[in-house]
Nucleic acid binder design. Structure first.
Lengths: 106, 106
DNA sequence: ATCGTAGTTCGACAGTCGTCGTAGTACGGT
DNA sequence: ACCGTACTACGACGACTGTCGAACTACGAT
């Protein structure tokens, strides 16, 4: 099985660290990704379909940061990767945090 | 009036940026400060009275970061500076955010 | 006036971060 | 088999960050 179909590493809920989550959310580009994912809901979206003012490689970098922090879930489908917000985990760990952030004006 | 009694610059509620707040909260030392301030409540505490594993100058640096982000309020009293959490402003701007963060295990 | 306490400021340093371009890998379709 | 699409990996670069020590300022007390 090739790298594209390997399951990407995601931290289990119990390993998610608040510092990592906050750091992941503190970047404008990543915050934009999270807002877009929250808007779309649980259907998810291909990484590349999110409109971002950065190159492909930077996009990959940000998505990895979000994934390794436990903020998003990435699932390979064909040549694409469907990304979803880990709302259930975040809400369980830090109730109100995500809603509070999404309530911010933008 | 000397520098120690000058009013320190704090952003008004309307100027507080979610990215700055998240960045301010993403550091372990600063998160510890915020947790301590939340525990103490609205009475506030002298900056130096918070137990931290860093030197004086690093402490000053972190407190400035928190203050300029709009997370804390610092008021000079004698040679000390009383620090309080801007709970009302943060709760108004991002309802649930602070509580969610404070709910995190530590 | 002198001293101690509380906190700031400055410069320096190592480490991290966001960004990019280039090269590479994987999958689906023709 | 080949090509295009989707994304990753690597190396590089400048910018920012957390940390410190040393010097400095301000206030209160003796």
């Amino acid at each position: 099985m090739g790298a594209m179909t390997e399951t990407l590493t995601h931290p289990p809920r119990s390993d998610i660290q608040i510092e990592s989550v906050l750091h992941a959310l503190a970047d404008p580009v990543r915050l934009r990704i999270v807002r877009e994912l929250a808007r779309i809901g649980c259907d998810g979206i291909a990484c590349g379909a999110i409109d971002l003012p950065v190159t492909k490689s930077t996009r990959t970098h940000h998505l990895r940061t979000l994934r390794e922090a436990g903020v998003i879930q990435v699932r390979p489908v064909g040549t694409s990767r469907i990304t979803t917000l880990r709302r259930d985990d975040l809400d369980a760990l830090y109730p109100g945090l995500l809603d509070g952030i999404l309530a911010a004006p933008h």
